[in-house]
Design a protein around this nucleic acid. Structure first.
Lengths: 232, 232
DNA sequence: AGTACGTATTCTGTATACAAAATTCAAATC
DNA sequence: GATTTGAATTTTGTATACAGAATACGTACT
């Protein structure tokens, strides 16, 4: 399946009024995105060697943009490039997963506090609406939409913190954890517990109680470790 | 000054006993290192365009490894690649610098706590020795060695936290702040204040008081913002 | 004179070519 | 049978070539 160079990166005719510079994407960006997806979906297994020739053929690009994409992913810690010896999909050790969640807990604690202090009422309402949407996915046990809404809630809290670096670091760690979260958290009880914690967050959010939100978020991530520890 | 490809990446005959895999560095890694240094030293000014042709000529490498190096630096947020329009040295806005320090404060708070819990007595002694060395540099007002010892203290605390991700994120943020720290913190009073804060840290460290160390570190980084805010 | 257009030049992005390193595999040796 | 040695093959790293986009510049026009 070759990358189609025509359909991407066109201006969106819908928002003709908002004159944001149109997003151009070069081949290596697209390639990086595709490899990222393959890693999350498990098509490229953690620990496995990346076959440059095969992927290059499949994506229909030359080695140059492909290798640039690999460097980007290496900087994101998703792949490891061993000089002269090929690249492998990084497989985080359990210690590393714990470490990521510990850092995330600390960052989201800060994000929760800042978000309650600085977000507008409208933003908070939007966040709570997102929460309700997630709950309705849970009611139907709709796993994938739930998962996506969940990710979005956490990113939104980070965004509403108003700290761009916090958002950026959180995004990076989330992306490294995506695959693990994707396969983990399978049991109904654990899922229910995670949902309860989210209800707690929503309560704190409604009261703009930043300390409480932060504390709940930190606990939530500690529990997340317990929920995923046996899949790493 | 072209990069010498012969002398680098050879096995070091001194540590023949320690059979750690020898560090091989490919051209783009070396190039990335050199550009990083140029940015910190200010030879490549923040906000300025990166002249690919000129640098490629100066370093004596071809465009391929150079561009791969640029992608690495872009992932590190040190340069910005604008598709089809060249690369520039990223110039962090004051808001971003504040954001980085805020995140660092939170991370080092955690690092301080963990370090006091988990570091061995020997490691702690080493850290305190480093502190004393820094103080003797301060006594002589030896700016560069002081600066380096300072960086090393903060990295060591992160390392002794035992959380590799914490160390990794901290290292990334430190490297983005290096240039700013390098030019900032010039006044004798501010320097003295920073030194005082470090004495506080050392006291907390001797008592293995993690909470206190974390708090002092957080305050230290808040003050750092005040010390550098007028140079960004 | 100032603006708009079109052309020349430079720079960027991708593909390909080539050299060097690593890996594979088979024969030779112990 | 296991281990070593050494081609043959594959893979990786770097250089270069080429096409297309962006920028600079000069000319015509108002």
């Amino acid at each position: 399946m070759a990358i189609d160079r025509e359909t991407e990166s066109e201006t969106d005719p819908r928002d003709a009024s908002a004159i944001a510079p149109i997003a151009r994407s070069s081949l290596h960006e697209q390639v990086a995105g595709r490899i990222r997806d393959m890693i999350i979906e498990g098509r490229l297994a953690a620990g496995s060697r990346i076959n440059e020739a095969a992927l290059v053929r499949e994506l229909g690009v030359s080695r140059t943009p492909f290798r640039e994409a690999l460097r980007t992913l290496a900087a994101e810690n998703l792949v490891e490039i061993r000089p002269s010896m090929g690249s492998v999909v990084r497989k985080p050790t359990p210690e590393e997963v714990f470490a990521m969640l510990q850092v995330l807990a600390e960052l989201e604690k800060l994000a929760g506090r800042l978000c309650c202090e600085r977000a507008s009422d409208a933003d908070l309402a939007g966040l709570l609406a997102l929460h309700e949407r997630m709950m309705s996915h849970y009611a139907r046990r709709d796993r994938l939409p739930y998962y996506k809404a969940n990710q979005e809630i956490h990113s939104t809290i980070a965004r509403l913190s108003g700290n761009p670096v916090l958002l950026e670091v959180q995004t990076g760690l989330q992306s490294r954890l995506k695959r693990i979260r994707y396969v983990g958290n399978r049991s109904p009880e654990r899922w229910a517990a995670a949902v309860d914690e989210h209800e707690e967050m929503a309560r704190a959010l409604r009261r703009r109680d930043g300390e409480r939100l932060g504390a709940v978020l930190a606990v939530h991530l500690t529990r997340t470790w317990e929920r995923v520890r046996d899949v790493v």
